[in-house]
Design a protein around this nucleic acid. Structure first.
Length: 591
DNA sequence: GCCGTTTTCGGCCCGACTGTTTTCAGTCG
C-alpha cells in the first residue's frame, strides 16, 4: 500500500467531493451529494479501518458504499489518489475546504468568499476573511449584508475558541448540562414535559449539541423563557417553534416545542439518528405515508395524524417501539417490523462490579483508590449488588523485589479473607488489575498470583506499537490462565488519546473461544470497549463484564454509562457476565 | 451514487430559521 489514509481523512475527502458537487451544480448532482455525504457518515462511524479492510479485500458490502465509491477507495489505497475526485475538485481552491470547518460556513458561502476575494492561501484563509469582514468589504458583496458580515466575524471568533462542526463532549458532561437546563425549564408553568433528545437520548459516547424537546400549548412563552436562561451567552436563533442558544461554556442547546397531542412524533423525529429517520421515512413513503415531527400524513390526503407517544407512532407504521440506543439504522427497523427486537440489558440486571480500586495500601504501579474496602461494600449493598470484586493495580514491579511483592499479595489476601468474615451480605471477589507489559507478559510472577481468584489484565503503557505486535501482546497477556477479563481494551481516552491499534477481530475470536471476557468500562472519558466494537464482538460470541473502574466510592454510580454502551452494542442480559448470580459468575471466573 | 419484502430502473425524508430578498438561498438537524 502506498499510503496510510485514516477513516477520518477519507470521510473528509468524501465531504469535500460532496461540497465540490454542491458548488458546481447542486441541482444536477443532488443525489451524488447525498450519496457522498452518507458514505462519509458511514465511514466516520466505523471502528475498522478502511485501509485494513482494503488489504483484506473486504471493501465491498459496506452499507452506503457502492460500486463507484468502493472502486474509488481501492484506487486511493493503491495509488494515493483518485482521478475522479481530483477532476471534480480541480476548480475549487483549497481554502474553500478549510473554511467549511467553521459552523455557518457551507460550500456556497465559502466558495463565494474565496473566489470573489481571490484568497489563495489555505493556511491564512481564516485571518484573511476576518480582515475583510473587519474592513466592511464582505457586506458589499451581493447576497451579503451588515448582519451576515457580523455573523461571519462572530463565527470565526467562536471557531477559534473551539466551536467547530466536529467538536464533541463526553456523554456524562452533556448529560449534566442537559439536566440543568431541564430543571430550569420545568419551573415554567407552560412546560408540560421536557426531555433530552438527539444523541443524548441515544446515549452516544460523545455529544455535539444538546437537544431538548418540550411539550407545551404555549410555544412562544416557552421560547421566551428559554432565552432567559441565566447561563445564556447569546441567542443563536429563535423562531415560532424552535430556538438555539449558546451557554456560558460555549455549548449549544437546541430547543424544540410541540403541542402535547403531537409530542410523540416530536420525540421520534429529534431522537434520530438521521440515518434511522431517513430509512424509516423511505419505508413509510413506499406505503404512501409522509413522516415529520408533526405526525404522519397520508400522501394524497392533507390530514395530519398526530401521536401523543412514540409507541403509537411506531405502532401506526407496524413497528415495535425501538430503544433509542439502537436507532442507528443498523437493521433495527427490519427487526421491529418482524417484532423481533432484542431485549437489551438494563441497569437493574447488574449484580456486581468487578473493577474496583480500594484504598488498600498495595503500593501499586498506578493510582490507588480513595475509599476503604468496607465503605465500598456498604455502597454495593445500597446498589443491591450480590458481589464486588476488588482489583487494585498490581504492586509496582520497579520498586519491589519479587519477595516483597509476594508478601504484599499474601497480606492483602489475608486482609480480604478477614473482610469476608465481617461482610456476609456482599460476596467479595479477590481480583487484581495487572499490566500487560510490552512483551505480553503479565506484570507479576506466577507465584504471587496464587493469592487472587482471577486477573483483570490491561495495557497501561507503550500504547503505540504496530498492529501485529500489539495484537500478539494482548493475546499473550490474555492467555495467562488466571487472566479472565481484558479491561478497557482499546485504552482510548475520549478527546485525549486515540485507541491503540490492534486486530480486534483476532482478539474477539480469541476471547470467544477461550472464554475470556472483554470489559465495558464505564469511566466517563473511557467508555471502552466502544459501542461499535461491542456490537462486532457480540456478533462473534464474546461475553462482557460492565465495570466502573472505581477509584472513589462515588464512581460506583457510573455503572449506567457502561450499561448504555452495552445497549448501544445490542447486548442482552445474556451477553453480560456480571448479570449472573454470584455462584455462576464465580464458577466462570475460576474455572 | 446507492439501493430493492411492489423495483436491477427509477426513485431518493422533511422541516425550521435567518438574512437578503420581495419569493428565495443557504445552513442546519
Amino acid at each position: 500500500m502506498k499510503n496510510d489514509f485514516s477513516n477520518e481523512k477519507i470521510a473528509q475527502l468524501l465531504r469535500d467531493v460532496a461540497a465540490s458537487y454542491t458548488i458546481q451544480n447542486e441541482g444536477k448532482f443532488r443525489f451524488q451529494i447525498i450519496a457522498y455525504q452518507k458514505a462519509a457518515d458511514t465511514i466516520e462511524g466505523m471502528t475498522q479501518q478502511l485501509r485494513d479492510l482494503y488489504s483484506e479485500d473486504k471493501l465491498d458490502n459496506i452499507p452506503g458504499i457502492g460500486t463507484s465509491i468502493s472502486a474509488s477507495l481501492k484506487e486511493l489505497f493503491s495509488t494515493g489518489k483518485v482521478n475522479h475526485f481530483e477532476s471534480i475538485m480541480k476548480d475549487i481552491p483549497t481554502p474553500v475546504f478549510r473554511l467549511l470547518e467553521v459552523p455557518t460556513f457551507g460550500p456556497k458561502k465559502a466558495y463565494k468568499l474565496v473566489t470573489k476575494f481571490k484568497l489563495a492561501n489555505p493556511d491564512t484563509v481564516f485571518e484573511d476573511v476576518k480582515k475583510l469582514a473587519e474592513e466592511g468589504r464582505i457586506a458589499e458583496l451581493e447576497g451579503f449584508g451588515q448582519k451576515s458580515e457580523a455573523d461571519i466575524l462572530r463565527a470565526l471568533e467562536e471557531f477559534k475558541k473551539g466551536k467547530t462542526k466536529t467538536n464533541r463532549m463526553p456523554y456524562p458532561f452533556a448529560f449534566e448540562l442537559a439536566e440543568k437546563m431541564i430543571e430550569y425549564l420545568k419551573k415554567s408553568p407552560d412546560v408540560v414535559e421536557a426531555f433530552p433528545l438527539g444523541s443524548l437520548r441515544r446515549k452516544r459516547s460523545t455529544i455535539g449539541d444538546i437537544d431538548i424537546a418540550v411539550a407545551t400549548k404555549k410555544p412562544q412563552k416557552v421560547l421566551d423563557y428559554f432565552i432567559d436562561y441565566p447561563y445564556l451567552e447569546r441567542i443563536i436563533e429563535k423562531g415560532t417553534a424552535t430556538s438555539s442558544i449558546l451557554t456560558a461554556g460555549g455549548k449549544q442547546i437546541d430547543l424544540m416545542t410541540q403541542n402535547p397531542d403531537g409530542f410523540g412524533s416530536l420525540l421520534q423525529h429529534f431522537t434520530g439518528s438521521k440515518q434511522h429517520n431517513v430509512h424509516l421515512r423511505e419505508y413509510a413513503l413506499r406505503k404512501g405515508l409522509s413522516l415529520s415531527e408533526y405526525g404522519i400524513k397520508e400522501k394524497d390526503k392533507g390530514v395530519q395524524k398526530k401521536f401523543k407517544t412514540e409507541e403509537d407512532f411506531y405502532q401506526f407504521l407496524g413497528l415495535d417501539w425501538i430503544p433509542p440506543e439502537i436507532r442507528e439504522d443498523e437493521g433495527e427497523i427490519e427487526l421491529a417490523l418482524k417484532h423481533n427486537l432484542p431485549k437489551l440489558v438494563e441497569l437493574k440486571d447488574i449484580k456486581g462490579d468487578l473493577h474496583i480500586h480500594s484504598s488498600y495500601p498495595i503500593e501499586p504501579s498506578h493510582d490507588l483508590g480513595r475509599t476503604s474496602m468496607s465503605d465500598l461494600l456498604e455502597k454495593a449493598k445500597e446498589l443491591h449488588y450480590e458481589y464486588l470484586g476488588f482489583s487494585e493495580h498490581n504492586p509496582s514491579v520497579g520498586n519491589h523485589s519479587e519477595k516483597e511483592i509476594y508478601q504484599i499479595m499474601k497480606k492483602r489476601h489475608k486482609y480480604i479473607e478477614d473482610i469476608k468474615k465481617y461482610n456476609k451480605s456482599i460476596r467479595v471477589i479477590n481480583l487484581l488489575e495487572t499490566d500487560i507489559l510490552a512483551d505480553g507478559k503479565v506484570a507479576l510472577p506466577d507465584n504471587c498470583l496464587e493469592f487472587v481468584d482471577g486477573l483483570i489484565v490491561s495495557v497501561h503503557s507503550v500504547f503505540s506499537m504496530d498492529k501485529e505486535k500489539m495484537t500478539k501482546r494482548i493475546l499473550k497477556g490474555l492467555s495467562h490462565p488466571k487472566a479472565k477479563i481484558l479491561a478497557h481494551p482499546t485504552a482510548r481516552l475520549i478527546n485525549q488519546r486515540e485507541g491503540l491499534t490492534a486486530d480486534w477481530n483476532q482478539v474477539f475470536e480469541f476471547a470467544a473461544t477461550n472464554n475470556k471476557a472483554l470489559e465495558i468500562n464505564s469511566w466517563p472519558t473511557r467508555l471502552d470497549l466502544p459501542d461499535t466494537l461491542v456490537k462486532q464482538a457480540k456478533e462473534m460470541g464474546v461475553k462482557f463484564v460492565i465495570d466502573t473502574d472505581t477509584h472513589d466510592v462515588i464512581h460506583m454510580n457510573n455503572m449506567l454509562y457502561g450499561v448504555s454502551v452495552a445497549r448501544r452494542g445490542w447486548c442482552t442480559k445474556e451477553d453480560i457476565l456480571n448479570t449472573l448470580p454470584f455462584e455462576k459468575f464465580y464458577k466462570w471466573l475460576t474455572q
